[in-house]
Every structure is written in C-alpha cells, then in structure tokens.
Amino acid sequence: MKGILIIFFYSFSFVACSQQLSEADKQSRQKADNVAKSQLKEEIEGSTHIIFSVADKDFIILVENTGSYREYYIRSMDNGETRILKDTTLNLSGELAKRMFDKTIYRDDFITFDSDFFKPEYEASSGNITYFVMKDKHGKRYGEARLSIFIKPNPIDSAVYSYLVERLLYYAKSM
C-alpha cells in the first residue's frame, strides 16, 4: 500500500510541475503536425526537420538530408485544403545549417507567453502568432514555441529565427 501511495504522489507531482498547454497551443501543434504529415509524410519520416508557421496558415518546413536541405512553403487555404506552393533544395551555409539542426541550442519545454522563460515578463511582443519546432528523426521535439512574430527576448536562436521569418516573408510576398 505504501508503494502505491508513493507512486500516486510521484505522478501527481510530475503532473503539477509540467506546463499545461492551452487549447490554442495544442491546436497550433496539431495543425503543424497534420500539415507536415499530410503533405510530406515520406520526406519527414525518419528525418530531422523544422516546422515554422505564422497564424497556422503559412508554413516553412525544412528537412535535413545528407549534404543538402529541402525547404517547403505550404499554405493552408481558407477551404481547409493545404498546398505545397514552393519546394526548394537549399545549400545553407555551414554555420546556419549547423545551428538550425543543433538540438543543444533548443529548450526542451514548450515556450509560450506564460512560460518561466519570460518571468517576470517579456520586453516586447507584436504581430501574428508563430509556431516553431525542431523534430529529430525519432519525433522528439526541441525548441517548441508559440509566440508572436516579433518577440523580445526570443527563446529561438536569432540567426535561425531571422532566416525562417525572412523566408516566410519572401514566399508570402512572391505568391
């Protein structure tokens, strides 16, 4: 009986310490995963990849391949359909690519405006809501965040984040 009580209190304390995601956080995560799986199932399966979205509508998915990277720009249409609008093979600079796919630079927890990362508060926040995650070849999530497009401080590496925002703006403007 004593062992059961210890297990109960241990599991309760684990749940109490873990961050509770809002419905909007869960929806952004699910939308990103669904878009990636429905459009790029074969490309992302067993591959490390990054998903970045703005307003759960415009997505950049970067897939690490041997010696190169594939970048997809995907848009979720108003009718619920998703389309790959751009598919590009990239030769990213060594340092940027190394940083993007270096799981040690990312936090393990899901960062939102309510996270301890922003205690006591964030300095500035503006723009549409973004979602970011790097997933390794086993599906483990790194650096997961749902924040505004302009956030200070930013929990995501500035070079990585700048690249993704610039690419998304480029695609959105050219389509």
Rank of each mutant, 00 (worst) to 15 (best):
S126K: 13
T82P: 08
F9T: 03
D109F: 07
E95V: 03
R141I: 06
K2Y: 03
R75W: 14
S76W: 12
E42Q: 14
E42V: 07
A24N: 11
I84L: 11
Y69C: 05
N154G: 10
K41S: 09
P155K: 02
Y161N: 05
I129C: 10
L92N: 01
D116A: 09
S47V: 01
E144Y: 06
R141D: 10
I105L: 11
N154L: 12
F8N: 06
H49P: 02
E123C: 13
D78A: 14
E81C: 10
F150V: 07
S28Y: 14
Q19A: 11
F14W: 13
R107T: 09
D56K: 10
Y106C: 03
L5C: 03
I151N: 03
I156M: 06
Y72I: 04
P155L: 01
I51H: 04
F113M: 06
N154W: 01
Y142G: 05
G67D: 10
D87R: 04
L92R: 00
F118W: 12
A55C: 02
D56C: 06
S125Q: 08
A36V: 08
K103L: 09
T48L: 04
R83I: 13
S174P: 05
F113R: 01
N154I: 05
T48M: 12
F14A: 12
F8K: 11
S115R: 06
S115E: 07
L5S: 07
D102I: 04
V133Y: 04
F101W: 01
S174G: 08
M175S: 11
L85C: 08
G127F: 15
I129G: 11
I74T: 06
K173R: 15
S68N: 15
Y163M: 01
F8W: 00
E166Q: 14
S53E: 05
H49S: 03
I111Y: 11
E144P: 02
T66P: 01
Y10S: 08
I4N: 12
G143D: 03
H49W: 10
K135N: 12
R141H: 08
E121P: 07
R99F: 08
S148D: 02
D102G: 00
M175L: 09
S53I: 09
L164N: 08
R146M: 07
F101T: 01
S22D: 03
K57A: 04
N79M: 08
A32T: 05
I7W: 02
S162E: 14
D108H: 13
L92F: 13
V133E: 04
G143L: 03
F110D: 00
L62A: 05
Y170Q: 10
G67F: 13
H49Q: 09
N34S: 15
P120L: 14
